[in-house]
Each structure stands twice: as C-alpha cells, then as structure tokens.
C-alpha cells in the first residue's frame, strides 16, 4: 500500500516536470528580446558614390514620404572639392540653400541614406576623413539654431557631454527629433546606442543597441 502510494506520487512528479519543461521550451522559441546587445557589425549605411571631376556632380535623396528633396552638388577644383547642399519640396521646387564647404580630396561629405528626420524638419550629413567621421544636423528650412549656429556638430557636442565612448556611426532618426548615435566603449568591446535630442542638444544613453 505504502509502496503503491509512493509509486503514484513519484510518477505524478515525473509527469509534472516533463510537462513544465515542454511548456518552458516552447515559450523559449517565441521569446521576445527586449534588450539586445549585439556583437554584430552594423549594416553599412549605403552612401552614394561620388565621382568627382570638373563637372558638377549631383546626388539626390528624397524624404521617406516623397515630399522633400535634398540635393548635393559637388565639383572638383584642383586638390579640393566644393560641396553645396539645397533642399526643395515637390510642391514648390525652388531651391533652399543649406550649406557649402570646400574639402581636400582625401576628405568627403555624403548624404546618409536616412538623412531626413521623419517629419522633414531636419537632415544630417556625414563628413568622412582618414582620421574620424563627423556628422552635422541642419534645419531643412535653412534657418539657424537658437544659438545662431548654422548646424549642430555631433562629434563636438558628444565630446563635450559624454565620456567613455567613441562614436561608431550615426545611422538615422528614431523619432522626429532624435538621432541615433551608435558608440563603442573606450574600455572593452561594449556597444551602446545614444539618442541625440536635436531640440535640447542632449544625449541619452539607451539600454537597447540599435543594430
């Protein structure tokens, strides 16, 4: 009698353990990753190829809703390349001047794929040099920021406000005024994403890495 009772309890326990394990394993396959740190390399942001010659080269990037256009004109002049940027809307095609800069041929400026903010208020450009990449945020209307600056220099602001990390890439916009800045810790291999808030010029460290 006692043996039979012990046997039945044992069998019940075994069935219970197997069942709970099955449920747990099944749920694992649908586990939602709410915090993702990735060792994967970022997908490269495609940059338009710039063939620099004496002729004026044009590169265009439309906003995701198709309503605005950013145009880059580049022209080689000896050892330098002159870059100029203009915006226009599809409804009113008049060019709005944004920015221009002369770069030595070893450096370049490009339009990132995700240059336009979701509401078309801002855009950002990437300046590539052999030493470091920099990123500049502009009003799409061409107006200046509150401190009268023509643009916000992301590397400069990051160096002033954040320590311990190096910018790897600025990939695009998480929201109408939040730029995604991917970084790497100066000590170790940890990758961290920040939001740069264009309105407040502040950086917010995130728990999720945007890869």
């Amino acid at each position: 009698m006692a043996t039979l009772r012990r046997k039945s309890i044992l069998i019940s326990l075994i069935i219970l353990i197997i069942g709970v394990s099955l449920v747990f394993l099944a749920k694992q396959s649908y586990k939602v990753e709410s915090r993702a740190f990735s060792a994967l390399h970022d997908s490269p942001t495609p940059n338009p190829t710039i063939i620099v010659s004496n002729a004026v080269q044009e590169t265009i990037m439309d906003s995701p809703d198709g309503k605005m256009t950013l145009k880059m004109e580049s022209q080689q002049q000896g050892d330098y390349v002159e870059y100029s940027f203009y915006t226009s809307s599809k409804s009113v095609p008049t060019k709005q001047y944004i920015f221009s800069k002369k770069e030595i041929v070893s450096d370049s400026i490009s339009i990132p794929y995700n240059t336009w903010s979701p509401n078309n208020s801002y855009l950002f450009l990437k300046e590539s040099t052999p030493v470091v990449n920099d990123y500049y945020v502009f009003f799409a209307s061409g107006k200046n920021f509150t401190d009268n600056s023509q643009y916000l220099d992301i590397q400069e602001l990051f160096a002033q406000r954040v320590t311990g990390y190096t910018i790897l890439d600025v990939t695009g916009w998480a929201a109408p005024n939040l730029l995604i800045v991917n970084t790497k810790a100066n000590q170790g291999e940890r990758k961290v994403s920040f939001w740069f808030n264009v309105a407040s010029k502040t950086f917010t460290q995130l728990g999720t890495y945007f890869y």
Binding site: D42, P64, W173
Partner: peptide, 22 residues
Amino acid sequence: GTYWHNNFGHRMSHGCVNMKTT
C-alpha cells in the same frame, strides 16, 4: 509604411517589416 522613424537598414520594429512609405 513608416512615418515615425527613419532608420532603415537597422532593426526598429516590434516584429513587422517597416518600409519607407514611397
């Protein structure tokens, strides 16, 4: 389509495939 972010080429959604509206 997607009007709330512009970070294509990088994961951003809760499972769906976000695309540029155009």
